[in-house]
Amino acid sequence: MGSRLNPYLSFGGDARQAMEFYQAVFGGTLVVKTYGEFGQPDTPAADNVMHGMLETPSGFTLMGADAPPGMDHAPGNNFSVSLSGEDEAELRGYWEKLSAGGFVAVPLEKQMWGDVFGMCTDRFGVPWMVNISGA
């Protein structure tokens, strides 16, 4: 397998719910391991996610975890997860699910460069960009 680049998201105690939500959006196989499974069974964070990985039928890989015990979770605005391609139905389906219950900053519509593009933040505070390539 060659190198790959994928987003790794940090959460403040709701990583399992977020990763299950993304699995419902994109499908695929989700593997979740907790701090308790990695040798910290007696801590208050034992049930928190130490590492989660979603691999989807479309070839996406999304990883995430709850912030480790003792480390603050500070969501930032210095990243977005970008989805792009030509399959309009697939990408619109992702958009509908990701934007539901979240905030739409840029509606998914045709832009001046010819593509359909939108920006939203999902209900877990993760910003997304969706770009559907023009003909």
Results as ranks from 00 to 15, higher is better:
residue 81 V to H: 08
residue 65 A to C: 12
residue 53 M to N: 14
residue 61 T to V: 13
residue 80 S to Q: 12
residue 104 V to K: 04
residue 76 G to W: 02
residue 64 G to E: 01
residue 45 A to R: 08
residue 65 A to H: 07
residue 79 F to W: 03
residue 84 S to K: 11
residue 61 T to D: 02
residue 58 S to A: 14
residue 76 G to A: 08
residue 96 E to I: 09
residue 67 A to P: 11
residue 56 T to G: 05
residue 113 W to T: 00
residue 102 G to R: 06
residue 76 G to P: 02
residue 45 A to C: 11
residue 89 A to I: 11
residue 31 V to H: 13
residue 124 F to E: 05
residue 68 P to C: 11
residue 127 P to V: 10
residue 72 D to K: 12
residue 42 D to K: 13
residue 109 E to R: 06
residue 58 S to D: 15
residue 73 H to V: 09
residue 58 S to N: 12
residue 125 G to A: 08
residue 98 L to M: 05
residue 81 V to S: 04
residue 81 V to M: 02
residue 56 T to R: 05
residue 92 R to G: 07
residue 95 W to Q: 06
residue 54 L to Y: 03
residue 82 S to A: 13
residue 61 T to I: 15
residue 113 W to M: 01
residue 81 V to I: 09
residue 33 K to Q: 14
residue 78 N to K: 01
residue 74 A to W: 11
residue 83 L to W: 02
residue 69 P to A: 13
residue 109 E to D: 11
residue 68 P to A: 14
residue 64 G to L: 06
residue 102 G to S: 03
residue 46 A to T: 08
residue 84 S to W: 13
residue 57 P to Y: 00
residue 33 K to E: 14
residue 109 E to N: 00
residue 36 G to P: 06
residue 108 L to A: 05
residue 35 Y to F: 15
residue 43 T to I: 14
residue 107 P to N: 05
residue 120 C to W: 01
residue 97 K to A: 14
residue 49 V to L: 09
residue 64 G to I: 04
residue 79 F to V: 00
residue 58 S to F: 11
residue 91 L to F: 10
residue 111 Q to A: 15
residue 33 K to I: 13
residue 129 M to H: 10
residue 66 D to Y: 04
residue 119 M to F: 06
residue 82 S to V: 13
residue 34 T to Q: 05
residue 31 V to K: 15
residue 126 V to G: 00
residue 105 A to G: 08
residue 60 F to K: 09
residue 89 A to D: 12
residue 35 Y to W: 12
residue 83 L to V: 08
residue 49 V to W: 05
residue 83 L to N: 00
residue 51 H to W: 06
residue 46 A to C: 04
residue 35 Y to D: 00
residue 110 K to V: 14
residue 70 G to T: 03
residue 47 D to E: 15
residue 71 M to H: 06
residue 92 R to S: 10
residue 62 L to A: 01
residue 63 M to C: 09
residue 98 L to V: 00
residue 44 P to T: 11
residue 87 D to P: 01
residue 86 E to C: 11
residue 123 R to M: 08
residue 92 R to T: 11
residue 62 L to T: 04
residue 91 L to Y: 07
